[in-house]
Amino acid sequence: MNSNLTLTFSLMDPPYENARSTTAFRLIEAALRKGFHVNVFAYEGAVALPFLQQRAHANAVHGRDVEQEEHPLPHQWVQSLMRLAEEKGLQLQWVNCGLCVDERGVDQAVSGVRRGTPGDLWQFAQQSVNTLIIPAS
């Protein structure tokens, strides 16, 4: 258990665009399972990851309805990570860049996500044993 240590991740990719988002979720989960507190600073398109208005859809091309398609929703993955942190008694702080949120109109985020600025990333890095920046390209 490493419950006094924190790792920070900074993400930039929007949902449904790149495997980096999946990898970031895997890293956050691995860190929580190993007992680390986790900070996430979401920048640019990544602020849409916890957007509550994402909707599952059917797939007419393959003849599947909504249930059969089982379309993944990144905001549900964020909620799962929040639950995992709570179950383990750990902190998962998720800050969305406020300007990036406003630009994209994605201001309805899952519970536990708050608005912030790049200054939060600096503070996160100061509080953490390490920080991984995952750029968009």
């Binding site: 240590l5 790792l7 890293l27 691995a30 860190a31 044993v129 390490n130 991984l132 920046i133």
Partner: peptide, 18 residues
């Protein structure tokens, strides 16, 4: 290797580059 190795190395203070 599993992703746990990345977490362990980050926790050890490695300088990490993506």
């Amino acid at each position: 290797a599993s992703l746990d190795r990345v977490i362990d190395l980050m926790a050890s203070g490695c300088k990490v580059i993506w």
